[in-house]
Amino acid sequence: MTQIDDQNNILEVNNLTKFFPIKSGFFKRVVGHVRAVDDVSFTLKQGETLGLVGESGCGKTTASRCVLRAIDPTSGQINFTTSNGNNVDMAALSNREIRPIRKEIQMIFQDPFSSLNARMTLLDIVGEPLLVNGMKNREERLERVSELLTLVGLRPEYMQRYPHAFSGGERQRIGIARALALNPRVVVADEPVSALDVSVQAQVINLLMDLQEQLKLTYLFVAHDLSVVKQISDRVAVMYVGKMVEIADTNKLFEKPLHPYTEALLNAVPVPDPRQRKTEKKHLSGEVANPANPPQGCYFNPRCPYVQDICKTTKPTLEEVKPGRFVSCHRAKELDLSGIIK
């Protein structure tokens, strides 16, 4: 039965799992699985921004694409409250049943080049979601597209232009306009600024924050850049090798992380101020575990500076140790870890 416990939650992801089969040989036999997303749970509150962070291969992108049903999860629940108040488990719907719900959850892509069809004009790109969702009248579409382009800070006169006439930052705005065309309630942004130049990044981050205020959007913000995540997110969820390791309010997480991996991640971020150069360096050793063959026990144990015997044998589970603070570590309660802001 699909049920959302908390009225404030717009989306609840429970025990989401996505395994990719590894095939080998002439007959393409399955010889193993990459555990891209391995039993992950989190919630999205109405109107908030949840930052989903982690290093490459941690499964953050896969998890976000499952939420969008751009890929089908292996198992788990994705409970979503639709605009008319119904609760649906998106993971259980067929491709046909999902179509009416798609317009409520839209996506912003990382690459401003491959995400726009170079052979279509802005009008066709931004107008496509409108067209396929029943707005057949061209005049109406023209009006809505020009409204959307103004909203994201582009001149509506550019509607007949092709994407190749625009810079990376402008293309990203086009992508945002497309995502907003159907008045979605949730927007999944997959590294929306990481392909942009520093001076342009700030423009797009500001735009995303303004749009959220104006349109009461809920963001799932996937990123690897912790300073960007800090800027935009209300809460942060940290993933490591397909597992959720910690979820907390942004400031609390940056002040005092509860998971050793979060601590390491925060301390690895270079601070753009030479006067704050770190005197003692606490950097992780070793390599990220292979999601096709993760270690026994806690996946982080081979690199963890606080490792104990239990970590090598037993998998920890994600628990709420303080109100609103979820962590998946055997020693969460006893460790005193250091954040990077006072």
């Binding site: 924050m209 300073s227 800027q231 400031n251 601070v271 753009p272």
Partner: peptide, 10 residues
């Protein structure tokens, strides 16, 4: 224009 780890959220 670079977000600083020290700047306030939002």
């Amino acid at each position: 224009s670079i977000p600083s780890i020290n700047s306030a959220q939002g």
